[in-house]
Amino acid sequence: MENDLPRRREAEGLSQGELAEVVGVTRQTINAIERDRYDPSLDLAFKLAAHFECHIEDIFQPEETD
């Protein structure tokens, strides 16, 4: 799953740790999501979307396959 979490986070001037605190996970989890190494649960995706005041699909997009 691709995402533009780093761009949105940096646009708000948040560190990974600060965003992690806001949505109630660890900094390592935010880092893993940003590096496309972990797909968040639906619950966490909703929390991130709520924080950035957008829809989940605005942040996360399925990887395009050939």
Binding site: S15, G17, A20, R27, R35
Partner: peptide, 14 residues
């Protein structure tokens, strides 16, 4: 850039 952890606030990390 994304390969590194950015510093946090970081009471929860501590």
């Amino acid at each position: 850039m994304l390969d590194t952890l950015t510093p946090g606030t970081d009471e929860s990390g501590q």
